[in-house]
Design a protein around this nucleic acid. Structure first.
Lengths: 197, 197, 197, 197
DNA sequence: CATGAATGAGTCTTCATTCAT
DNA sequence: AATGAATGAAGACTCATTCAT
């Protein structure tokens, strides 16, 4: 009797809160996004908030971990492919599509301001590691296959690919006429130019 | 009789506060950098702080304006030059050198989190305008002179140059082995590749 | 049909909760002992807690009433005895033995902090009354039998006997080397000295 | 210029807050005495409260330390006296007079409920030490001078003197007809009886 | 009967800003 | 001009209690 824990409902509600938080963090920044505002956005009470997440920071970290997991999943799904350069470009495209969600740039900026907070720094380092260690082997394979410059180590070249993606994302948020729809092809082009021998 | 306002001393003190704020904002982010911490860093009292700046936000805006003015000055100093492509690359290098101050990436992130605050958004828009309107003519001139791709408008190409600089700056702050000394030549190379016909 | 209320099981569970509460109140004080902690200690859910007790305060009052009833029972069991002084000393010893439960001093302190709450004040007054009205007649009888000082009223002397027991209990909790095993004979001696003519 | 720190005014204000806190802690207990209520009682704002004390607990500890210091001062002032038994009785009387402040018993109870908080436990241990190490030598001297029982060590006898004072203080608070004015002579008598050979 | 997710009032504490000296 | 004590609005978080299952 008394089936009180419905794991599905729990997970669903958790995601509602995460979604609301993404909205508020993106629009207002971490500090200006009050827990009250997040609760309002999610349609829950403050008690419920702290029933699902231990602290406001804990919620942020949960979001970051979600992203890291998503990255790992994406790379895991590429296992067995052959064309390294193609995978790199697919990743770039995949990342760019993530940012079709207009809240993401704002969220990334919100997180950036918290780099001084150790727990955030660690979560970001984990995330960066996931991307880097996912991407580097494909860059290396592309180099060995030829068709990609090899005057840089695979790691350093991967880093620069990420730098360009970062720059693209940053502009998405701050430059008026710069939008995902029209610039995504330029992004692929820019990365191709960077990697050309 | 008593001329109590010594404009030089006033300006010097203002700069001391701005410098202290740059340090704290960069290390802790805008919200976590308390006025008390900035005062401590600057060696002044809170009363003095508000004698020089109307609010904490006012101080931040003053710093941003300083940067915008510096950008305008730099472009004003290029007047009369000929080689557009060279000026663009010089600007990239100049921007990169600014970021030799290790506090700047942190400061940029701190400001990014405040994009939702209208006054900050406007100040950033002014700053962006200064850069864009400074850079675009030189890109256009380079295109007309040949040697630079012209499948994009000058404005859009300038935007992408800035995107790459942004990406470089972002990595500077977040990637462990990515430092200004060793990556600056890669930056120029990446911009050159982007602009190549 | 369904007789769902098994009075014995009900009472047993009630006592489990009371015991758990005694533990938590004693260790943490009334306010710091959360209902959640009491539930954990008792191995029940919060819903069950409030099925057995109307409020957290109600639980505390129930514990106090239990103590009062126990006191009344003890004195009822002395009916018919002769030697008043002996009964007084027996009571002192009995009280001291109660405090062999190491949780009691802490519980008494926890309750002390709630004297400002009317319901607690009343419960304590009832308890004190039970002790006082149980003890005073025996003190009086001892005085009339001689061998006990009679320069004080029986009531006042009883009060002082209780004061010494209280002091003993207080030390039990706060003084390191002061333990029930070694000090109980001193307690009887101190009470005897107090009562000596 | 700018005489901003007036140490006297600072200390005076600190004492006003301490006095207000004593009132509220005594009447309501530690947890139920909100900082807001203490501020109201002291006629200050919440900001001022935290300007003078780091936390609500810090305020409580400050009060305890004040008491410990007072105890040390009292014993320091007895240096050079001769009659140990007289000093012990003077201390008992002195302690009893302290409790002429009707708030003290309530305050002691409020603190008792916090014995589980390490910082409070330590402060109380320090306080107990001050009393014990102040009193024990005088008890010892009285024993050596004769006229005081020596079947107990000086330390243990001192402990029992304190137990009786504690019991007296406890009754002061909880027993209706038990007041300082009429019972203080009984207190001295009780202690004398305890110490008699 | 038993469960535990949900609630929201209430608390401590922080911090930008003011102002008397 | 410079100081720093005082202010109080605002925010994160806790916890007793309710109620649908």
């Amino acid at each position: 009797m008394a089936r009180t824990v419905d794991p599905e409902r729990h997970e669903a509600r958790r995601l509602v809160i995460i979604d609301a938080a993404l909205t508020r963090f993106a629009a207002d920044g971490y500090e200006r996004a009050t827990t009250a505002a997040i609760c309002r956005e999610a349609g829950i009470s403050s008690g419920t908030f702290f029933h699902y997440f231990p602290t406001k920071l804990g919620l942020l970290l949960a979001i970051l971990d979600l992203g890291t997991a998503e990255t790992r999943d994406w790379f895991a799904a590429q296992e067995g492919r052959d064309d390294g350069a193609r995978v790199v470009l697919d990743y770039v495209e995949h990342a760019a599509e993530d940012f079709a969600d207009p809240r993401l740039p704002g969220f990334v900026r919100a997180v950036g301001a918290l780099m001084g907070v150790p727990e955030v720094a660690h979560a970001l380092a984990r995330d960066d590691d996931a991307v880097r260690s996912g991407l580097t082997p494909w860059v290396g394979r592309a180099q060995r296959a030829g068709g990609v410059r090899d005057d840089l180590s695979a790691g350093r070249l991967a880093e620069w690919v990420l730098a360009i993606v970062d720059g693209y994302v940053g502009r998405l948020a701050s430059a008026p006429g710069f939008d995902q729809a029209s610039e995504q092809t330029m992004l692929s082009d820019a990365v191709r130019r960077l990697m050309r021998p």
